[in-house]
Design a protein around this nucleic acid. Structure first.
Lengths: 296, 296
DNA sequence: ATGACACATGACAAATATCGATCAGGCCAT
DNA sequence: ATGGCCTGATCGATATTTGTCATGTGTCAT
């Protein structure tokens, strides 16, 4: 009888496995799942016992997951996707309407793409128009009522009560180790382009910090900035996701960079049930996984 | 806290739902799942509570599943498919080889097609050659070693210990109500074609039953026989799956038809690991669901 | 009516999950 | 090395879940 009973995966266990992968570790995953660390440890152990194979390698230095674990992880992702969609589909009302949504380039490659895709499937009568722009532009569009909502970056201290926080992020001053930062003279600054949000802050710091930045490089995409930093062109403001091993974080001589948040900010339009639902789905995804996966 | 915990489907519950659909009822499903009837009833109730909606209608006469139930059933099927494939993929060895498999036309539209498809995906290095023929032909091919295994119909009393029984079936003599069966004279018989397996039995009964059959209609496909019966051409031997509401089962005046079984019968080739695995997968599918779904 | 049948329900027992505490091993800075 | 510090494993005590048995309720065919 154990033969049959044991060969059965549990949704919860799969979700735990997934969380471990996407938050890098059992302890982290446990927080996110709202469980104790031991509970998650047990869950995985049970899963391993029932499958009679190792999923986590438990060897330092080595990748956390065994090949079998990676395999299962793949299935887990697909199963969980279906599972969550099934739950949503049961609560689906025949929703119709329009949503004009703004995104930053950053967020297009997160779980949001997946959520939007699913939203379209579940609510085929809602037309979703998505525009990808820079944060400052999106804000202006929200102001002008051109968007119903947008996913934008804001300073952590500017988060409004009505914003839905997707995740928080810290900016860092970075440079290449070979690049020597001289205490005098203007600091060569590698900047995103005009409408970049960090840039405003960076250029403003001249006033109080006494540091003068000189923009020596401009590029709209993060990849360009990363390349410029690693070739030692100067210093840049980058978020944790873009840090490379060969970059050095500057802790001295420059003002502490601001904390950021990615939020869903709604426009002023009063009622939009389709948007309510979409935001609700994003929200429940966050509460289920304790945040969005940054890369998919 | 219940908010998150409750909104979670359980694999077991989905499997129960699936079993209820495919075995037509809670009690039947319970047997198949190796549980008590109340256990399954509880399972579904819990599922309904956690989803806060009805899945089974519990109204006599009406379809057993609510629309929500049907919806979920669809997801359940997909989730269970992935789930089972995940389990299999973990035990997959890099299997290679060849399998020559025979099928009857009947079995092509059962779960077997699904299992074969999955088998190909999981073991891309195994080449599976499938031939669809009538049972008697398949037997001959097995004898000659042209097939490694075949799924054939046999009389229940002819099942060999080495056969794997997929499902059992009872044959019935059927006719249209308007067709009067006269006690004298030959009985007009609607027959599958030459190599049909029932036909042999039917023609043999002349000896002991004293009944003489006259074949008045021959057709290779079940659809043709069904049409002939409903137009009152004569009597036929049909299995339960092909019974139509307007058919009448004949219980008097003709010998009791034999019980049949669909089995996987292996050829005489000694070793074939790929075949072993395939048969194993079919077997575990059967033990998991208590048989194969006859129509997919 | 009445028995057969299919399902629901409630009480209780067994299995199983979770938690908090504790322990063991690795990593890092002194 | 050594002591903090972090991560994960393990243990015993509870809490929850899940199943079974016994029984109740409705429908249907006789």
């Amino acid at each position: 009888m154990t033969e049959l009973t044991s060969r059965r995966l549990e949704i919860d266990a799969l979700r735990a496995l997934w969380a471990i992968r996407h938050h890098g570790g059992i302890t982290r995953a446990a927080e996110v799942l709202g469980l104790s660390q031991s509970a998650v440890s047990h869950k995985i152990k049970r899963l391993e016992t029932s499958l009679d194979c190792d999923l986590l390698s438990r060897k330092p230095g080595a990748p956390m997951f065994t090949p079998a674990g990676e395999d299962l992880l793949d299935y887990a992702g697909r199963i969980l996707g279906l599972h969550d969609e099934a739950l949503l589909s049961l609560s689906k009302t025949s929703l119709a309407g329009r949503v004009a949504l703004g995104l930053t380039e950053d967020t297009t490659c997160t779980d949001l793409a997946r959520i939007l895709g699913r939203f379209r499937r579940l609510h085929p009568n809602v037309s979703v128009r998505t525009k990808v722009r820079m944060s400052l532009i999106l804000r202006a569009m929200l102001e002008r009522g051109e968007l119903d909502a947008a996913i934008i970056q804001v300073f952590a201290h500017e988060v409004r009560p009505t914003d839905l926080v997707l995740f928080r992020e810290q900016l860092h001053w970075v440079k290449h180790p070979d690049f020597a930062l001289s205490p005098e003279g203007p600091v060569p600054f590698l900047s995103f382009d005009d409408e970049c949000f960090y840039r405003r802050w960076a250029l403003d710091i001249g006033q109080d910090g006494g540091v003068v930045l000189e923009t020596v490089f401009e590029c709209a995409s993060a990849a360009g900035i990363v390349a410029a930093v690693t070739s030692g062109l100067g210093v840049a403001l980058l978020n944790g996701r873009h840090l490379q091993p060969e970059m050095e974080i500057i802790t001295q001589g420059l003002p502490v960079p601001p904390a950021l948040a990615y939020v869903v900010r709604r426009g002023r339009r009063v009622r939009n049930p389709a948007l309510d639902t979409l935001v609700g789905e994003i929200e429940s995804e966050i509460s289920r996984y304790g945040g969005l996966a940054l890369v998919s």
